[in-house]
Design a protein around this nucleic acid. Sequence first.
DNA 1: CATAACATGTAATGAGTTACATGATTAA
DNA 2: TTAATCATGTAACTCATTACATGTTATG
Lengths: 181, 181
Amino acid sequence: MSLPHALLTSLVERPCSGSELAARFDKSIGYFWQATHQQIYRELARLEEGGLIESLPEESTRGRKRAYRILPAGRKELKRWVAQGDEPTPLRDELMVRLRAEAVIGPTGLDREIRRRQAQHEEKLALYRQIEARDFPEPPADREAALQHLVLQAGIRFERHWVEFLAEALAILERPARAPK
Amino acid sequence: MSLPHALLTSLVERPCSGSELAARFDKSIGYFWQATHQQIYRELARLEEGGLIESLPEESTRGRKRAYRILPAGRKELKRWVAQGDEPTPLRDELMVRLRAEAVIGPTGLDREIRRRQAQHEEKLALYRQIEARDFPEPPADREAALQHLVLQAGIRFERHWVEFLAEALAILERPARAPK
DNA sequence: CATAACATGTAATGAGTTACATGATTAA
DNA sequence: TTAATCATGTAACTCATTACATGTTATG
């Protein structure tokens, strides 16, 4: 249940409306925790009901921007949560299941799909590197920037992982059905 | 929606009961697609209703093993699904959100948690390497074994990724609040 | 035969996704 | 002033998790 805390983190940086939060999620925190606008609106309503944030226009505003701001209780809750323990998110990817299936039911058209995925990951890797070059032209000195850089680097590392892995997968899939011993 | 196909894949290898499938999920496919026994039982019931698998004891057997076997329609469906496209599973980890939060609300006790996670990932890495040494003492010649090895290697790569990343994270967290320029 | 371990199953809950609805603002 | 876009919101659905229930087999 990280979404509320991801929102709180964004709101600590600066007050925001729901749509602005959705847009920011597409850029920074969202690289590692995605959310649709429906999720965001629902969660904002819950956070407000819980007294962790407040919004400016009191009345029900359908269609007009509603600016949310974090409350002291929200900061406190965020601080509490950060130090909490969690379990590693297990790797869960359909492609792995497909590879296992391909192993037992023989050649299918999986290599085409892998090439497609490879292109996607290369694209994302390039995007992250571009962002890195723009936002962190030199090693950041202060702690906050260093941590933000670190999270971006995790994304880079992750995409590189996929590109390398998929190349290996292709090498095996293109191998003749029975390799010489 | 990979679970039904993960189950089909296991059932292609050999017929199984629900509990046996749950046990096997803990070992091979489950490294990359987890499922509780409740999910597995429910999905098996659905697959049987859909005519993709069949089970031996017809009557409702509560407490007794029920052996499932894949049907031709199941193989066909699996083959169809393998070549299908999917989107990369986005990285989604609470720790990333915690790092971002720690960046904005200052030092918390996050480093302790990171050390704990590091130990967990190192443990898992060691386990995978052990399995690799046992099951793949030398590069597998045939396609099926090569693919299974590949999936295991993905797990190894993934854990290594985490260990390295967490080490970097610690280095930053232990830095003094204001580093010299 | 009593107890533990195993095997299957039901029910409730919650996060996430998808489709759709509606009011406000902006641009042609 | 109509159309397009933006902003907020509702509703239904699926997957996954958690807690619990019930029967069967193995063990002492």
